[in-house]
Design a protein around this nucleic acid. Structure first.
Lengths: 348, 348
DNA sequence: TAGTAAAACCGAAACGTTACGGATTTGTCG
DNA sequence: CGACAAATCCGTAACGTTTCGGTTTTACTA
């Protein structure tokens, strides 16, 4: 009775057994066929028509149980509706799916608790690997997953305690070059809207800023640096503070996309003119920069490149760990950034 | 020998059997405990410490095989780095994960072939349901998945052949109100940058545009309407065409976010002033609108609301289809849009 | 304390696949 | 045509759960 109900509406999906019965062949033969093994031509045809007729699709769940591989990888990021994250996921997902892997996305809302929950969740789902742009910089959320011996690849933020590969942009150089560009245009009072101090990339960008100034013989001033949290709103607030505290500031460097947008909003709302009153160099997202008036000069990260590298590394690890499980040399890939010229920097 | 290698590096994950052995209880008891069944207090404690000690985590793959439920749903969208899609996924994923569901995202690059592949892929993965913002408007890619009896929820674009729920914005009214706003400000030569004609929402937005004009006694002109493909680049091109063809045009309505951005880029690059030379009303993404100079007036869709509705509907369906598999009344939920006032519309 | 209903427990059989070792068939060559 | 190696095939036992039906224990009641 109950059974009847359970079956209603289901297309009672065909299994390998049905194919075996239908063709008169054995289980193992079908399985072998499905996994690229050799079967006699005649049987191959039989199997193929049977698959067609019963419209059989292999059950990846069963396969996963047996092989202990789910062909699924988890991606844990701070915010999906952050252009950088979205772009990375797009790229990663593309490569992975072409290799038969599914991508489970977990947006942890920049919350360490949620991040840990997400990793545990993915562990229970038995993903074959995790890609993480970490919020919790001590890496404790990854410890127990790592014990499973499955690969982890970090994006954008290195973590010291965790042995794994990492792909990121050369943030130090990126920031240094941006600030250098401002200096070369005659600016000396240069503000910076940076990210949270515990985040690795934020530290590097700040260091790049300071380095560029010092190399130009300018002493970095405390009050010209203000720290946001990588959100649009904080960009607005930071810009307002910076302007209020430093009436003599002539240029500002903003260290991520969201805050760049925020800074532009702040500038517009305060009625400040770019670049006459204030020069600005932002970060990421060429499209937004192009839509601004005047067009923004920005630092761009090679997001597609980052994504491709991440995907390839994790694929390589997943191949490798069966035959050579000994920890090998983990790599940190650092990619170069670029500057897209706009009209937001004035020569003074 | 081989076995030895396979075990190296693995934390040889504990199973329910280990817990049973460790506690001296039976398999079924542990399983019952894990699923919220009753166990004697003393045993509960024993189980819990065993779980702790062996740090057992239930294998969702095995569970999925047995229960025929993967607690996973697939989302197929045209482009992840499209603000609308990203926002929807963020919202959906949030709700679903809170209910123990994982979300597999498939970005099909606005390609019908890839879209079909994605759906098949998800079927093989045995997802419990699919959420789709369809590219292929004839819905053929969904047919075979639908035979499995699992729920499908469409976003933003209704499909006639497919019986399922659908959540979207009231695009007709949205467009009508936007154009009405332009008319009320004295505009009569109003251009429109619309979307691909086969897409449902694009049709509705176009209809809204025409309706608003006609209600104001203005006859819609063929040459004032130009069709893009929802990308930034096409927004730029469309705007250029429109301006070239219609020197007397005083206002333009743009029917999605990406093209709005494109139109703004085009306007800036042509040196046209907003709103003195041209008034504009765009679509979606308040943040971008706010960052524009002058601030843009835009139509906003309740993306969070849409996402929440989508997630809830699919959850409901997944609950329901066990006890009452008979096709029930599918619903189309149409949510109202809003207009956020900026300074991009001039009164003439 | 005996008797009973309810609660808690248990073993075994599935779910759909893969993988092992051995059995069968095929093709080739003297 | 017979023999032998290579190629193909097969049955069975897992993988880690849930679930079914039945057995034991517990907690009451009389």
């Amino acid at each position: 009775m109950i059974n009847r109900y359970l079956k209603v509406g289901k297309a009672l999906a065909a299994t390998i057994k049905d194919i075996a019965k239908h063709t008169g062949l054995g289980l193992a033969t079908i399985s072998s066929y499905l996994n690229g093994g050799n079967v006699r031509e005649a049987n191959r045809e039989k199997i193929e028509t049977a698959i067609e007729e019963l419209n059989f699709e292999v059950n990846e769940v069963a396969r996963g149980l047996k092989t202990n591989k789910t062909k699924t990888i988890g991606v844990v990021i701070p915010e999906l509706n952050n252009i950088f994250c979205a772009e990375i996921i797009t790229g990663v997902e593309d490569v992975l799916r072409n290799h038969g892997y599914a991508t489970i996305v977990c947006d942890c809302r920049t919350d360490k608790e949620l991040e840990k929950e997400a990793v545990d969740f993915l562990y229970r789902k038995r993903v074959d690997g995790i890609i993480n742009m970490p919020v919790n910089v001590d890496g404790s959320h990854l410890k127990s997953f790592q014990k499973s011996g499955k690969p982890i690849v970090l994006i954008d933020r290195k973590i010291n305690g965790i042995d794994c590969d990492c792909v990121l942009a050369d943030n130090l150089t990126a920031a240094k070059n941006a600030v250098k560009r401002l200096v070369e245009n005659g600016h000396t009072k240069i503000g910076m809207i940076g990210g949270p101090e515990e985040i690795f990339t934020a530290q590097e960008r700040l260091l790049g800023y300071k380095t560029a100034l010092m190399e130009a013989g300018i002493v970095p001033e405390e009050k010209l640096v203000v720290q946001g949290d990588y959100t649009i709103d904080s960009g607005v607030r930071c810009l307002e503070n910076l302007v209020k505290q430093n009436p003599d500031m002539t240029a500002v460097f903003v260290a991520n996309y969201e805050m760049t947008m925020g800074a532009v909003i702040g500038i517009n709302e305060l009625g400040i003119r770019i670049p006459e009153d204030l020069s600005i160099i932002g970060f990421d997202n060429t499209e937004f920069a192009r839509a601004c008036k005047p067009k923004l000069t920005i630092v761009t990260q090679p997001m597609r490149e980052i994504a491709k590298n991440v995907a390839q590394i994790i694929l390589k690890r997943m191949e490798a760990d069966q035959r050579n499980p000994e920890a090998s040399d983990f790599q940190v890939i650092k990619l170069q950034t670029d500057i897209v010229e706009g009209n937001s920097v004035r020569r003074i």
